[in-house]
Amino acid sequence: MYSQSLNQQVADTTGPDDAAAAARFQTRIDAEERIEPNDWMPAAYRRTLVRQISQHAHSEIVGMLPEGNWITRAPSLRRKAALIAKVQDECGHGMYLYAAAETLGVTREQLVDELLSGKAKYSSIFNYPTLTWADIGAIGWLVDGAAIMNQIPLCRCSYGPYSRAMIRVCKEESFHQRQGYEIMLTLARGTAAQKAMAQDALNRWWWPCLMMFGPPDAQSQHSDASTRWKIKRFSNDALRQKFVDATVPQAHFLGLTLPDPALRFNEATAHWEFGEIDWTEFKQVLAGNGPCNRDRMAARRAAHANGEWVRNAALAYAAKERARAAAGAA
């Protein structure tokens, strides 16, 4: 899915002793070389990546919840199988993103603890509820569509393990996006009730999806360092505009109306202009006050707590097996 940590300020704490190494590092970045786990890197580069990759991983895992909410109620066996497979893909994305973060010297356990303690964040979008089946279509089409806009540039991110993870993630996300759009198309061409369901989902998900790209450039805290390090390659507003330009014609093809009276095509710029985003809502959701923040965290904490005895059992059994093997070898 997507991480909003691109928008946070990082302090570049590279010391004078590292100045020569930092200069060599920047030369490699500028030459579009990939940085690998054992390569020298500035501490702030490492910290930025750990935060960004882990928040991305957390978003994948929390993102399983709103869609998982409809697995048991999917309207056909084909849709049920596709939805399980999709949510399972998100889990897989989370796993290989945690693995990518682990190449930077942290453990999955540490990162999960930070999520569960509330220290680490995940994408704001997953704090909205899935109320009808159309929401599953809207998430695939819009949320995954927005995620792709963000993630395609990350396939060229300077950090090798992250860029390679993104290449695989993007392939799967683009399949999800087509799947979501196909759900919407089926609803839009279905009964009046189904079309109304699709419209309602679009009304609820449109603005939160635009918020996924983060604050406007004018207010953005996004660091110059991330750009210099070629972690972030496009600004929030540029990506948001790209998403709007791609999505508006898709909505029109569905025969649905975007919930924005200010939306208009500017012939001169060849872009769709859109209305004011409610940044107060965005800030409130980030602050923990979205409709589902508490439910999402409660679900993750419950899964972790309820699984503790299972994880302990696996460790205890592995220790016994090692002891038995050692005794057998002695």
Partner: peptide
């Protein structure tokens, strides 16, 4: 799905 004791078991 989404509630397993570890991600590997969710999968």
């Amino acid at each position: 799905c989404g509630h397993g004791p570890m991600l590997e078991e969710d999968m």
